[in-house]
């Protein structure tokens, strides 16, 4: 299988003293369901932000979909975020004054899709994540698990190459966490979407194709 994301000697330093990422070279293959595990401060989130084109590395390079990412080209980064990347956050991060359906279709607004197509896709995804009857609810009216399902639908709505989920179960109880991870796994199988999931609970490791361990900014086997 071809690599959908590849990093080459990726390093991120803050100032002269803090090294968040140290010489990280990894490959995520198309359709893979990969976990990144490590303690807090091990550089997982930094890696995710760089892969997600939200942050730039100090040195090293990243290729997404076989193409080098130019971190100095702001509009190219915006284009990648718009088309190639989906985010799921620990805090769910839905827009509070938009309904579940509007939250799901929100990324399509910046992709200039017609309203009809947006609504259709959002409805289909809400149904896929098991919340068809919650479409017109606002985030405050949803439980944590439901909010995260809406967020997952939002991350998939523009058919990204890769979904980056940064501790998606960090704010959920263990039962709901398992449900969410299983949902992600199902979506990965059904849609062949590549997932990189940051997690620190090793209980669900069996769900993943591969586990990448991180310690102090380095990748460990």
């Amino acid at each position: 299988m071809t690599a959908i994301v590849a990093t080459e000697r990726l390093t991120k330093r803050y100032g002269t003293t803090v090294t968040a990422l140290d010489d990280v070279s990894i490959e995520i293959r198309r359709g893979e369901f990969a976990a990144i595990v490590g303690r807090s401060g091990s550089g997982k989130s930094t890696l995710m932000n760089i892969l997600g084109c939200l942050d730039a590395p100090t040195s090293g390079s990243v290729a997404i979909g076989g193409r080098q990412v130019d971190y100095t080209d702001r509009s190219a980064l915006v284009h990648l975020r718009r088309t190639a990347i989906g985010f799921v956050f620990q805090q769910f991060n839905l827009i509070p004054n938009l309904t579940a359906e509007e939250n799901v279709e929100y990324p399509l607004l910046f992709n200039y899709r017609e309203r009809g197509e947006r609504t259709e896709r959002a409805r289909a995804l809400l149904e896929r994540v098991g919340l068809p009857e919650r479409a017109s609810h606002y985030p405050a009216e949803l439980s944590g698990g439901e909010q995260q399902r809406v967020a997952i639908a939002r991350a998939l709505v523009h058919d990204p190459l890769i979904v980056l989920a940064d501790e998606p179960t960090g704010n959920l109880d263990s039962k709901t966490s398992t449900d969410i991870l299983e949902l992600l796994r199902e979506l990965n199988r059904d849609r062949q979407t590549t997932f990189v999931v940051v997690t620190h609970d090793r209980e669900c490791e069996s769900l993943f194709d591969r586990t990448i361990g991180m310690v102090d900014g380095r990748v460990v086997a």
């Binding site: 939200l54 915006v78 975020r81 985010f87 956050f89 939002r154």
Partner: peptide, 8 residues
């Protein structure tokens, strides 16, 4: 978040 989901 708006920027993360693709707003320039």
């Amino acid at each position: 978040i708006t920027m993360a989901v693709g707003a320039s």
